[in-house]
């Protein structure tokens, strides 16, 4: 007999996170998923193998690849910008800072004219958040990331939103899943991962989080665990990015 229950009980924190990232794409349909980083990438590929078979995924460079790694299309950077403007895309970006209304910073820490720490720059964050659904992945949930106010607004939050297509969906971290489904679009605690207390998350967040109805993040199914462990990440890189 397949030890389904044993596997479920021993899901690692990284696997919980990957499944929470897969759930970001529920209902997405035939759009380009653009996950940045290992755990969101595992999540997007897991979603395509389970709930969202029509997702498009690139190799991170210029090829669209099927789950079997067959090239099914061409997606150089110039065409990525066309997809951004067209809107059929859901990006999962990282964040050096995130605030209560979902403003994100990947540009610089401190005064932009003379930063204490120069980061990447705006990259595509302004265009992504102005044009299509955007989520964030934070591998180390702490008060230096979850700040009262970001130093530079790279990704646009709800209190700065302009235009018809702004849609910041969720934030997945190593501790919890959060969204903005409150009357003023401030951040809300949706679920804590198994083994995490609500108070842990509140302590690691600089601003107040609504936390009236907090669930436990769901466990992977046995199919999902099997896919993560044997197909998508047999070397276990996920568990090094997010230790249990």
């Amino acid at each position: 007999m397949k030890p389904v229950d044993v596997a479920v009980e021993t899901a690692t924190r990284a696997e919980i996170c990957a499944v929470a990232c897969a759930d970001l794409f529920l209902g997405a349909g035939e759009i380009l998923a653009s996950p940045m980083g290992l755990i969101p990438s595992l999540g997007a590929r897991l979603a395509r193998l389970t709930s969202e078979p029509d997702l498009l995924l690139s190799d991170g460079e210029a090829f669209l690849l099927t789950p079997e790694s067959t090239v099914e299309g061409w997606m150089p950077y110039r065409r990525v910008f066309d997809v951004v403007a067209h809107g059929r895309r859901h990006v999962v970006m990282g964040a050096n800072q995130l605030d209560r209304f979902g403003n994100q910073n990947i540009s610089a820490i401190g005064d932009h004219a003379k930063p204490t720490r120069q980061l990447l720059g705006f990259r595509g964050a302004p265009g992504n958040t102005a044009n299509h659904r955007t989520s964030y992945w934070v591998p180390r949930h702490n008060p230096r990331v979850f700040v009262d106010a970001v130093d530079v607004v790279s990704g646009v939050g709800y209190d700065h939103a302009v235009g018809p297509f702004h849609d910041v969906h969720r934030v997945v971290t190593n501790l919890a899943v959060l969204d903005f489904d409150t009357p003023d679009h401030s951040m809300r605690l949706v679920s804590v991962h198994p083994g995490v207390d609500v108070d842990d998350v509140l302590r690691q967040t600089s601003f107040p989080l609504e936390h009236d109805e907090v669930d436990e993040t769901r466990q992977p199914t046995d199919v999902e665990l099997d896919l993560l462990r044997t197909v998508l990440d047999p070397a276990g890189a996920r568990n090094r990015e997010v230790p249990s």
Partner: peptide
């Protein structure tokens, strides 16, 4: 014209 940049600090800076 482009939508990217609206609401972000690209314009403030």
């Amino acid at each position: 014209p482009i939508r990217a940049g609206l609401g972000s600090d690209v314009l403030r800076l």
